[in-house]
Design a protein around this nucleic acid. Sequence first.
DNA 1: CGCAAGATTGAAGGACATCAAAGGGCGTGG
DNA 2: CCACGCCCTTTGATGTCCTTCAATCTTGCG
Lengths: 232, 232
Amino acid sequence: MNGTRIRALLARSPLCHELPGPAFEAMLRATEPRTVAARQNLFHQGDAAHELIILGTGYLKVWQIDGSGDPTTIHVLGPGDPVGAVAVFRQVPYPATATALLDCVALCWPAGWMLNLMERHPAVRANALSLVGSRTEELVNRLREMATEPVGQRTARALLRLADQTGHAVAGGVEIGCPLSRQDLAEIVGTDLYSVSRILRSWAASGLVAAGRLRVVLLNRAAMQRIADGDD
Amino acid sequence: MNGTRIRALLARSPLCHELPGPAFEAMLRATEPRTVAARQNLFHQGDAAHELIILGTGYLKVWQIDGSGDPTTIHVLGPGDPVGAVAVFRQVPYPATATALLDCVALCWPAGWMLNLMERHPAVRANALSLVGSRTEELVNRLREMATEPVGQRTARALLRLADQTGHAVAGGVEIGCPLSRQDLAEIVGTDLYSVSRILRSWAASGLVAAGRLRVVLLNRAAMQRIADGDD
DNA sequence: CGCAAGATTGAAGGACATCAAAGGGCGTGG
DNA sequence: CCACGCCCTTTGATGTCCTTCAATCTTGCG
């Protein structure tokens, strides 16, 4: 990842919005890029939040494991997304584990450096607040869906979100941009891999999606949206 | 609610932590207390967030309704808790409805006044950030529980949270401090009132709780904690 | 006393998780 | 280059937890 691309990425990052020029340049100079191979962890649930991370390239999932060993995926994040920023700003340990779905480049800043920047530039804190706010809003939606909607509907929502976030156009539809197994999808939706497999299969049969190994292509967005909205 | 009590309440409020004395006094002077009768709404999903609210007395629930009319309770809030603060700071409409469970006194400040205070005092924004952060952490936990745990376990967790938050000691146990019907509990747990009724009844039979009309008393906290932890 | 709101209980059915087994792709190493 | 093995995926059978529907009971209050 070269300097020009990093600059462009950072300029679009929610944390740098309305950041004064000199502060932005300082961030650019201070970044410590780090590569993480697919399936490796960027950090682990319980680790001290030493550094602020903005994902440069690749995709990762942020997930938690509960008392009985059941994993749940909280977020899937892509280029430009801050990772674990809340923990850094609150100065608490990471509440979840971040695992690379693909080889990733992570832009890192030491936590102390970033807190210092925040003290000197209110815009950073304002951006952090608005970032956390929008994440919270999404979590509330997920919670409501989990509480009230059946598995099929939640799966449709997950695919639509992933398509918006990571999708790229292919012949006839939009392909989810990161490799997700049925198990991965199950951990996002809150079910098991068997249910996901059956649902995808039935949608494939009716031409809604094309499903392959670690791969899903959305073929009919409108119909998927209707399912997500509960208009079975 | 008299001035002394308001002062004490505000001093303990997470939003006022480390707020300079003069700013604190200004907040005290600027507050516009408002009473809200039980079952009335403080604000409604979609309303413009034109005031910041800190609950003075009483309890309220913050809830959303989904496309098919199914309600979900996001939070139960009590004295000292900010209500809808995220929407005010982000300057977006309230994403949920706040309904009083009891007669309430709400301390209100015009949104503009509060945003101005925030511009002048970084501590306010810092407090807002840490508040949203902790709410987010709780939401993530709720999401994980909703995704992986059975109804009984989630109900146990809800009762424990409510006891910690609103409970007061009574003969033999801790009584939940706000009146919640089986339907209310169901909307918190993510199930229906019939399941809640059956669960509470079976727990009452084994001496874990005492359940009455709009009333639950936790009689055996340790056993309830074991259920919440999945050690059936 | 009677009504209304809340709570309980039973019966029935369905959606979904679980268990078990077998069927593909893909990379790797022989 | 082929074959082996691993991981991902599919599919069937089975069971159960939970929702749904319907009816009755309880409690507090006007």
